[in-house]
Design a protein around this nucleic acid. Structure first.
Lengths: 187, 187
DNA sequence: GTAGAATATAGCACAAGTATAATAGTTCCA
DNA sequence: TGGAACTATTATACTTGTGCTATATTCTAC
């Protein structure tokens, strides 16, 4: 459902094509939601069938015709309803394949795990860079659309990204130090 | 694939039924992986078809017969292979429906968001309690199986849980303070 | 002028997880 | 003795997301 309403929320700011939405996803909400272009097109069709959006074909400034989606009043109402829905459990996916590996690492031992954690720490530091890129993209959107009313909420979401990445880094550093103190050495 | 190898990893410690595996999932790895019982049974069948486990029917101490699964040598080898597989990107799912809502909250405004964040902070504090429960469950498993060789890896995974929950709490507190400073008041 | 990159949409097979219902044995206790 | 709670497994439909392929247009660099 999140992609469904994520698209609806972005279309509330400005009418767009599926292709445009994909780009915005990759540049902004990517650190907590990603979507394949194929899924976005499929979901847009579902949104139109549900009467949440309407589409028109328009000439593109570059490339083939675009199908521009616009949010309807019904779509706006349903978005608000979803945002306030208190009955359903709202998940934060903590499913973590990497942690599953750490948990099961007795089969490979501490030396191997130490090497794996060092690589992962480098990845986390890279995630921090990507977040900075997301943040520096905001002014670019400000030029394109009127996002002044969005700004506060975007900043709060972004702060969550920083808190999370920093905690990942702290954990990896702590675990590496701990394994080293136990006498493990990466292969 | 993670559930696949998660089950295999637990079966390496001790042969068990699907029902047993579900209970262990809920009590231990739950903070980074959950599984429906229906999915566990389905996955066990797939593991057996793949030759990673074998099953036998045994009388239960209480209730109907159990189908006990045992890991095979081939299963152990494949688990190790997966743990060391360096070619595939290992995901940590940061898909976050709650954050999607925060991001799109301009439709409901800062006052509503403040109320939502307060409730979420209470949930995070509860998550901390649940982690403590997971940790205090470890000695219980130590009695049942020989998990001395697992202990180090379980502790490192658990530490990640603490780092994560604490960062969620810090973020929620910070955001609530920020909204209050901006003059927002929960409805 | 043409190859290739970027723009733009659509379709299908597959993987992984959810939700729910059906079935049935055992234990416990009112 | 009857029913609730727990133990235990199976089956099936559905949802969400991935990966890959096909198709077509327009712009840019050589």
């Amino acid at each position: 459902m999140s992609l469904h309403f994520g698209l609806l929320g972005l279309l509330k700011i400005c009418p767009m094509s599926g292709y445009d939405l994909k780009k915005i996803f990759d540049e902004s909400v990517n650190f907590f939601w990603s979507a394949q272009i194929s899924q976005i097109y499929r979901e847009l069709k579902a949104l139109e069938r549900a009467g949440c959006v309407v589409s028109t074909t328009e000439a593109s400034s570059a490339g083939p015709n675009k199908r521009i989606y616009r949010i309807t009043e019904s779509g706006k109402a349903r978005l608000k309803e979803w945002l306030l829905d208190d009955t359903r459990e709202i998940g934060e996916d903590d499913r973590n394949e990497f942690l599953m590996r750490v948990f099961l690492s007795s089969s490979i031992g501490g030396n191997e795990l130490l090497g794996i954690l060092r690589k992962r720490l480098a990845k986390y530091r890279n995630d921090l860079e990507r977040l900075n890129t997301s943040e520096s993209n905001i002014p670019k959107y400000q030029e394109k659309f009127d996002i002044e009313s969005e700004r506060l909420f975007w900043m709060i979401s972004l702060r969550r990204g920083y808190h999370d990445v920093q905690s990942h880094i702290r954990w990896a550093e702590e675990s590496i130090r701990f394994l080293e103190d136990q006498g493990y050495r990466a292969p």
